[in-house]
Design a protein around this nucleic acid. Structure first.
Length: 283
DNA sequence: ATGGGGGCCTGCCGGC
DNA sequence: TGCCGGCAGGCCCCCA
């Protein structure tokens, strides 16, 4: 489901709910999602207080008072449902689900978080906070696209040695963190670059433009509360609305939105995934 | 070393 | 109405 803006939206919504709160107990309804759950998961989490809720790429990271960090990845279909019974101002924000509720976190203040994930591509892990750089999921993740490390120099240097298409380069989490199919397509549209162009063939000027557009499209999407396809929800249960701003994603056969462009959006397959673009104005 | 394809899962939608 | 194929926001693994 979620790319960087959706995960960031979830994080921002969860902060007031869980930060500073103590996990009372954890109900684990199956042994694994995509990968086996970490050893003694429920035991290691219970009675731990969440000090900070962070995000790295598409991963949510909850730092715990005892020196470990809980890592959660939502995969394609993962959701974190919030419910609560004891908070004065707090009501249940999501309908009660049942199917695919794999892990339930009960907090001592009465709040309950439920990890629901039909396709089970999600991930949960626990690692020593100080050893984040050694974690198998985070180890090779590239720079954050909204951070200072991801700049024109870095991206030009990286792209010039890559013979893969620019679309596949944007999806490579070792090169830049957090982009998925939607925001890769949308940034390429804004930069007027075809997703099929080999990264190493693109001029520095265009790559610089692409860096800027990656940033702005992600920032706009975060401001909009992410994109709601199928059932992505913000933590408060509301839909994100960035999907209304898509220029190309999911718009096959529809007219290009560029002023005076007569093109129609096409869909092509790259490495088994759909890319959407306007062949007339993206070269 | 890098790039591409397969596979992991369930749900939904369109066509017959 | 029901069945089947295709597709879906991700990412690890394997092979050339």
């Amino acid at each position: 489901m979620p790319e960087l803006p959706e995960v960031e939206t979830v994080r921002r919504g969860l902060i007031p709910v869980v930060q500073g709160q103590t996990i009372q107990d954890v109900q684990v309804n199956r042994p694994d999602l995509r990968w086996p759950f970490p050893k003694d998961m429920a035991k290691r989490l219970s009675q731990e207080t969440i000090t900070v809720l962070r995000r790295r790429s598409k991963y949510l990271l909850a730092d715990l008072s005892g020196g470990e960090t809980l890592l959660i990845h939502l995969g394609m279909s993962g959701r974190i449902l919030i419910s609560g019974t004891t908070l004065g101002t707090f009501i249940t924000k999501h309908p009660i689900q049942k199917k695919h509720d794999h892990v339930v976190f009960n907090f001592s203040n009465g709040v309950r978080l439920t990890f629901n994930d039909p396709r089970r591509f999600g991930t949960i892990d626990i690692f020593e906070t100080e050893r984040e750089h050694e974690n198998k999921y985070l180890r090779y993740i590239g720079p954050e696209p909204l951070g200072n490390e991801f700049d024109s120099t870095y991206f030009t240097d990286t792209a010039k040695s890559r013979k893969a298409s620019i679309k596949n380069v944007l999806l490579d989490q070792r090169i830049v963190a957090g982009l998925g199919n939607i925001y890769a397509c949308e940034s390429l549209y804004r930069a007027r670059l075809s997703p099929k162009r080999k990264a190493c063939d693109i001029s520095k000027k265009l790559l610089d433009t692409l860096v800027i557009h990656i940033r702005t499209v992600l920032e706009e999407a975060i401001t909009a509360g992410g994109s709601s396809l199928r059932d992505f929800r913000q933590a408060n249960g509301e839909l994100g609305y960035f999907q209304h701003s898509f220029a190309v994603y999911g718009r096959e056969f529809q007219p290009c939105k560029t002023l005076n462009c007569e093109g129609k959006i096409v869909r092509v397959f790259q490495s088994g995934r759909s890319s959407f673009y306007c062949p007339k104005c993206q070269k």
